[in-house]
Nucleic acid binder design. Structure first.
Lengths: 249, 249
DNA sequence: CGACACCTTGAAGAGGTTCAAGAAATGTGG
DNA sequence: CCACATTTCTTGAACCTCTTCAAGGTGTCG
């Protein structure tokens, strides 16, 4: 059974066989497009192995040696910082086709934890090989630069959210972003199943789990959402978008 | 007169002549170390031009075409997002030796503004040339990867700050980070001159300018800081650090 | 010197947190 | 497959931090 509970179609329902990058249907998400056939063949050697990660298990932990990036083939992850003082901050949620582990490059050591929120499988791409190939294949190099830059820009957006939005706006932004990414993967743009707890959502959005819960309830009362625990259906997309766009204050 | 108001030594006090990267005293901050002489000579060609930016002027603006990274030679910048709804979020403050413009790589278009907070000069490094040279000089490639990864990790720290710290902790983290970076550049580790307004600090830290001002006043009352407008002296470093390390709540 | 931007401080108010209790869902072991 | 333990979620009430609004002070630059 597909952990993604497909709502529209089921593009995630991949056979458990070894699939080459050149033949992977997630390729357009995690690989550069427009490569020559020989370059594509090279890129197939990027993935050293696959790795399965059970729900609740960690793909890597802060402090561990970094030596590879991971492309998510299936499943859902969170990345989180844990400060010495016990504070915990979810820095992102990642889904199939997204790259994880970029934080480790600076110090050859991971600086956050990556935890699977559902059973997952990742492609292990040794970074030394990526770097080597990026020196030979310019489009791959450009792709890598873009992936890193995209992460920087994404985090800018989170800073805007955390720095200047109120609870309702944060949750609205969060939901719109999630469905948009799911939709790009062939899922419904109005229904979604949250893979994370209220507490994890709260940590990401800089609010307490009770506030997350209350905000969900308010959206439900207002007829914007239908919330059944982690099953969420967007009933009034325009209203959600209006919440995001309204001026602060 | 040096805009940096040197407090200890004056390493920023550079002659206004053209200085090659291989001969620049900021090199260790913005360039990879341990290059061969011939690689160093190549890298000298990285900087196409210098550019002076007056206080208040923008180095680049959101939406503008991206084609170069900038290494700050002197001066002080802020980068900020301006959402359509008028919201404004400072995403960072950058000083000499730091690289600016990474956000533009993804879409070949800048996604934030970079504004000089004091008269500044930057080295213009066309990104196409950086990429080209990174394909030939592995240490440069690695350096670029690290610069981008470092920015990602820095932003994780800001997310932690914005997501889980209270006003006093935020300001303490901010000040400690600033003096640490200034100290690495040869300035005092206990005195600093803020190049930005209370409002800009507040935007960065996710709080209103009044709260920034009040928090400064509280620190001054507690004998932790001596605050004279933008002249700040840290009187009790340990107390500042204690504020950061104390458990949330 | 006067205009303007910036900073400080007070008082009232709002939004979110904390604490607490109970309900619903999920997982586990018999 | 069911019962129980555990985790997760919801909701209420009191509280607290930060914001908002307002006024006055300080510094700076033409």
């Amino acid at each position: 059974m597909n952990q993604h509970s497909p709502l529209d179609k089921t593009p995630m329902d991949l056979p458990a066989m070894k699939v080459a990058c050149s033949n992977c249907n997630l390729r357009e998400l995690c690989m550069p497009v427009g490569l020559s056939p020989q370059d594509l063949a090279h890129i197939d050697t990027l993935v050293s192995t696959r790795r399965k990660v059970k729900r609740g298990a960690t793909l890597f932990r802060s402090g561990e040696a970094f030596d590879a990036l991971f492309a998510i083939r299936s499943g859902f992850f969170k990345t989180c910082l844990n400060a010495e003082d016990g504070r915990d901050q979810v820095t992102g949620f990642q889904m199939a086709g997204e790259i994880i582990g970029l934080d480790g490059i600076v110090n050859d050591r991971h600086s956050c934890d990556a935890v699977a929120l559902e059973d997952a499988e990742v492609c292990v791409m040794p970074f030394a090989r990526i770097a080597e190939m990026a020196r030979e294949i310019a489009p791959l190099q450009q792709h890598l630069h873009r992936v890193m830059s995209r992460e920087i820009v994404r985090e800018h957006g989170v800073m805007l959210l955390l720095g200047s939005m109120r609870a309702e706006e944060r949750l609205a932004v969060f939901l719109l972003n999630l469905v948009q990414r799911l939709h790009a993967r062939g899922f419904s743009s109005s229904e979604l199943v949250l893979r994370m707890t209220r507490e994890e959502i709260g940590s990401y959005l800089g609010m307490k789990l009770e506030t997350v819960s209350r905000t969900f309830s308010r959206f439900a009362d207002d007829g914007i959402l239908d919330v059944r625990q982690r099953q969420v259906r967007i009933l009034d997309l325009a209203a959600l978008q209006r919440i995001v766009n309204q001026q602060a204050g």
